[in-house]
Design a protein around this nucleic acid. Structure first.
Lengths: 127, 127
DNA sequence: CCTTGCCTTGACGCTGACGACAAGGTTTAG
DNA sequence: CTAAACCTTGTCGTCAGCGTCAAGGCAAGG
């Protein structure tokens, strides 16, 4: 499988795949003319990467999962390092959710005050 | 008030204040030697900017609030444009919170599966 | 032979809110 | 005279995950 095909089958671009390789996440053989050649296993690797990136992981966070797949596991999640990252990420997500909840509350109260103020102003004008 | 003092009183840096000015958010007089001179009103403006940026606003989102202050209002929130931005931002925050909630759930289930798998593996080894 | 369509490496662009540095002018205090 | 401590404009660097050329090679079909 060449890079274009892998890109298409994973919904990415050749550029993206080279970028992953450059960062040690994806591996490829080389044909005589220098073309990258991927086996079916890389398909799963790339899909794992994509799935995790979509969820907000960084490339560094993804590494343990790729290694886990390469170690022969059917899932990238089952290795200790992956579990650690999962736990850390859940904690991070929780923290962000909490923060956003507070932000939301603040914005909501600002909005409430603003509306109240505007009604006061309208009443004054009417008098 | 010179730029250093304003920076200190707002917890920012001179660089930051020049950046805001460059983007049309903060205004300053110039003294004979070319130094920026700020009046007390800019203090409130900068604090408004900072407060909104801290909450996740972009500079463009902040503009209506600054304009609202400049229009003579004691709060930057009370003008129609500010209210629109507030409503939009609340909606954005809600969307992100929802998304993160889904992400959290997915990660949690991945984690659960991973733990379950590891226990299976442990049991196999003991046999 | 020429075009089309793959592939290669290399390098700059992008988004946002600044930090950091360069190179210089001004004012004040000693 | 000079050092300290302000200020000025200008430009490049930062983080992440790529997009977008540029310039070129290779293979196959008409």
């Amino acid at each position: 499988m060449l890079i274009g095909e892998l890109a298409e089958r994973t919904g990415t671009s050749p550029r993206t795949l080279r970028y992953y390789e450059e960062h040690g996440l994806v591996r490829a053989q080389r044909s005589a003319n220098g073309y990258r050649i991927y086996d079916e296993a890389e398909l799963r690797v790339v899909r794992e990467i994509r799935a995790l990136l979509d969820v907000g992981f960084g490339l560094d966070d993804v590494r343990p999962f790729v290694a886990c797949l390469r170690a022969g596991n059917t899932s990238g999640d089952v290795c200790p390092d992956s579990v650690l990252v999962l736990q850390r990420k859940i904690a991070e997500v929780d923290a962000v959710i909490d923060r956003l909840g507070a932000v939301r509350q603040q914005l909501h109260s600002q909005l409430t005050h603003a509306i109240a103020h505007r009604e006061k102003t309208c009443l004054r004008r009417r008098k």
